[in-house]
Design a binder for these strands. Structure first.
Length: 469
RNA sequence: GGCCCCGUCGUCCAGCGGCCUAGGACGCUGGCCUUUCAAGCCGGAAACGCGGGUUCGAAUCCCGUCGGGGCUACCA
């Protein structure tokens, strides 16, 4: 599921929860080329991960049948035929090739490229006879002309479109499959949809859907068109921009509550300059009418920051639970109980420093391996000639140290710094690299405490010999 | 081209005729704190596209213009 779709779903969900309405999930799969059972699973996974439970629809059921459009083709066909019988729709015998040809001509002359309505004038009895004789036809809606459609969009206000700009669009393809317009409008009617909140790309289709709904003899729902999410080039966000699907954010180490929080901010704000907030607060305050009219650019840097905020807000046990899968996949094996308890000790310090859960594995790798892998840049930066005496002194002190606690280690090493006349940066960084493999790591004294005296001293010695050798 | 929508810092959001010398957040940046990295704290640069109206007064209302986006299929 695309993040733009995810945000649209989120706004629908917030609206339903805020108003006490019913959030329905249906699968629009009338386009064979772009539909696949895999897409359906991906969408449902994405919704579940974001925490957008639906009250009715696909996978959970409800009073209206299947909730998958490809299961409802007979229903759409029936609806189209009723309209033909009533005269508000008509069969069109033009072939796609002919239409294509005419469209090109129209464009060349600068005429509107829409369908010219020529089959509309075919006598009803004649058309019926031709179909009875086996001629295939698409079904088109006969738009009232002259005329205009007016409606009030919850986000955009009054919208008016002259029917001269609306062609008689196809309801049912000549092979009997419905178009998106027919299927979704019939569904909206059948499912008793009161509010349709969807992407702005569908704004131009709305007059068609309203005319169809009217022809169907049903009440027109209230529409709200949500602005699109753009990439940094101002174009509609797509894979080209490196945009990930909702589920990919999970794999990349994002928290669903962080993504949801960020998505809320794309086109909406809860007021009071609030930025970091739980979904429950969004439910309390959400109004479709308060959604911005402007397209929003997706800013990954802000999402990253937002994720850090949510990670830090996690209760410690929760942080552990979410971090573990990432550590294990980084390590390539499961954590032993002993390794897990080692991580638990350091976890609060790691949590403060975490932006993405996927970064944790490399941060704490040194806790779980037999031999640290030295980061090349870190090594050359701090393992200078001065580092040797520091390592020696540290080994001597730590071997003698009484209680192996972070506080004792710190006291001892600070005394060493005084003795050697070194500042912390000079004196501690070689130790950090020796013990963790990198100049960037969780706090040193605590790390040593967790590793234990033997491992710590052994690593200092290993670095010492490598420095000499 | 036609139709529709939109136009406040680089980005997201606030602003709904006087509270605006335009506010918050991310990012950027100077400093503090500091065992590294983060986090935190203090400070800084940074925007009402343009032109006309309306009004005592406009970021806020109207018109035009320019710019951006969407749609323009027997796709959704």
């Amino acid at each position: 599921m695309h993040v733009g779709t995810g945000r649209t779903a989120l706004f629908n969900w917030l609206f339903a929860r805020h108003t006490g309405g019913t959030f329905i999930v249906r699968i629009d799969d009338t386009d064979d080329e772009r539909s696949d059972p895999l897409f359906e699973a991906d969408i449902l996974d994405g919704l579940r991960w974001l925490g957008l439970q639906w009250d009715e629809g696909i996978a959970v059921g409800g009073p209206h049948g299947s909730y998958r459009q490809s299961d409802r083709y007979p229903r759409y066909r029936e609806a189209a035929e009723v309209l033909v019988a009533e005269g508000t729709a008509y069969p069109c015998f033009c072939t796609p090739a002919e239409l294509d040809e005419r469209r090109k001509q129209a464009e060349a002359v600068g005429r509107p490229p829409g369908y010219d309505g020529r089959c509309r004038t075919i006598e009803h009895s004649v058309a019926t006879a031709r179909r009875a004789a086996g001629e295939t036809a698409a079904i088109r809606l006969a738009i009232a002309r002259p005329g205009a459609t007016e409606f009030t969009d919850l986000i955009r206000g009054e919208i008016r479109v002259e029917h001269d700009n609306l062609d008689d669009f196809v309801l049912l393809r000549s092979d009997g499959r419905p178009t998106y317009h027919l299927a979704s409008t019939v569904d909206d009617v059948d499912y008793e949809i009161t509010h349709v909140a969807r992407g702005e790309d569908l704004l131009p289709s709305t007059p068609r859907h309203i005319q169809l709904t009217l022809a169907l003899g049903a009440e027109v729902p209230i529409y709200a068109h949500i602005p699109l999410i753009h990439g940094t080039d101002g174009k509609r966000l797509s894979k080209r921009h490196g945009a990930k699907g909702v589920i990919e954010y999970r794999e990349a180490g994002y928290l669903p509550e962080a993504l949801a929080n960020y998505l809320c901010l794309l086109g909406w704000s809860p007021g009071e300059d609030l930025t970091v907030f739980p979904l429950s607060l969004a439910i309390e305050r959400f109004e479709l009418s308060a959604v911005s009219k402007n397209p929003a650019v997706f800013d990954l840097a802000k999402l990253d920051w937002m994720n850090g905020e949510h990670v830090r807000a996690l209760p410690p046990e929760e942080f552990m639970a979410r971090a573990e899968p990432f550590i294990e996949s980084g390590l390539g094996h499961e954590l032993t109980p002993e390794q897990r308890s080692r991580f638990v000790e350091l976890a609060p310090l790691v949590q403060e420093r975490t932006k993405l859960l996927s970064e944790i594995a490399s941060q704490v790798r040194f806790l779980f391996v037999d031999d640290v892998e030295f980061d090349a840049d870190s090594w050359t930066k701090v393992m200078t000639a001065e580092a040797g005496p520091v390592l020696d002194a540290a080994v001597a002190r730590l071997t003698e140290l009484g209680d192996w606690t972070a506080a004792e280690i710190e006291a001892s090493l600070r005394a060493m710094l005084d003795e050697l006349g070194l500042n912390p940066r000079k004196g501690l960084q070689p130790l950090r690299v020796a013990v963790t493999g990198s100049t960037v790591s969780p706090p040193l004294f605590e790390s040593m405490a967790v590793l234990g005296r033997d491992v710590t001293v052994q690593r200092l010695n290993t670095a010492r010999s490598r420095l000499l050798g």
